[in-house]
């Protein structure tokens, strides 16, 4: 598996797309710092990018890589290598190179502006960690979808649907539910419901690190009390890791059963 991971990582790191991705984050973050000295504003803009673009690009890139390297995968399958190693190696290659581009693209400006030693280091760690975890989660989901669907159009359609559901529609349903049951105390429901969506969870983890958290009033206080505690941090990390592991396990399962 390590060898396959190494080859796919080498392959990807040298690819044009990864340079684009890295360059985009680098320019975007530098541009933001250049435009606004206000760190919380920079953080909010970066949060929007992390929550929307990182999942979308991870999804698309995972699909593209899987479909494009199909012939190479078939070649590998003919070799005496365990199946799960092939797919896990490729998946880790994709997720790893995406995370690497993201980390370098955002991390270099942070270091450049000396934020690694400032008081906002917690905020930026949260931004970086959630970006990396979202990369892993969404490339995993796209790999699983690609494994399950040989038809590329169908695969892309499904992946975009999943992204749309988690990034946008989920919040709509959450809001509907909240509005419908507004006569009841809903803090715990809201807390629980946002734990189940990695994008929402990342957003709230980042927001709680910002001044703007004060706007969230009583609900925000409930969130902060839970997510700010050690238990809350552990629970939210477990939930995010669960979101990483669920596609991984599904990939393994699907790869073992699939008939090529």
């Amino acid at each position: 598996m390590n060898k396959i991971l190494k080859y796919s990582l080498y392959d990807l790191v040298r690819s044009r797309w990864m340079f684009f991705y890295f360059g985009f984050f680098l320019l975007f973050t530098l541009g933001l710092f250049w435009l606004s000295p206000d760190i919380s504003k920079v953080a909010i803009s970066m949060m929007n990018i992390i929550l929307i673009l990182v999942p979308l690009i991870a999804t698309m890139f995972g699909l593209m890589y899987f479909y494009n390297s199909r012939e190479f995968t078939e070649l590998l399958l003919a070799q005496p290598i365990p199946r799960q190693h092939i797919f896990l190696g490729q998946y880790l290659g994709v997720a790893g190179s995406l995370s690497l581009s993201f980390l370098l693209g955002m991390g270099i400006p942070f270091l450049f502006y000396g934020l690694a030693t400032s008081s906002d280091v917690g905020l930026f760690l949260t931004l970086l960690v959630s970006g990396v975890l979202l990369s892993f989660i969404f490339s995993g989901i796209s790999f699983y979808i690609a494994l399950k669907n040989d038809n590329r159009i169908r695969g892309f359609g499904l992946a975009i649907l999943v992204w749309l559901l988690l990034a946008v529609a989920y919040d709509g349903f959450l809001l509907l539910g909240l509005a419908h049951f507004s006569d009841y105390p809903l803090e715990k429901y809201a807390l629980g419901a946002s734990l189940f969506n990695p994008i929402d969870l990342s957003r709230i983890l980042i927001l709680l690190k910002l001044d703007i958290a004060a706007l969230m009033g009583f609900t925000g206080a409930v969130f902060k009390k839970f997510l700010g505690s050690n238990l809350g941090m552990i629970v939210s990390l477990i939930v995010l890791l669960f979101w990483v592991l669920l596609p991984l396990w599904s990939i393994r399962r699907a790869s073992l059963r699939k008939d090529f």
Binding site: I44, L174, D200, R203, G220
Partner: peptide
């Protein structure tokens, strides 16, 4: 307006969906 009606919906602060809405 929604936050005024249902204070808990503030959890969606800065959500892309809210921007769309």
């Amino acid at each position: 307006y929604l936050v005024n009606q249902t204070p808990e919906s503030i959890v969606l602060l800065r959500s892309p969906f809210v921007g769309l809405l």
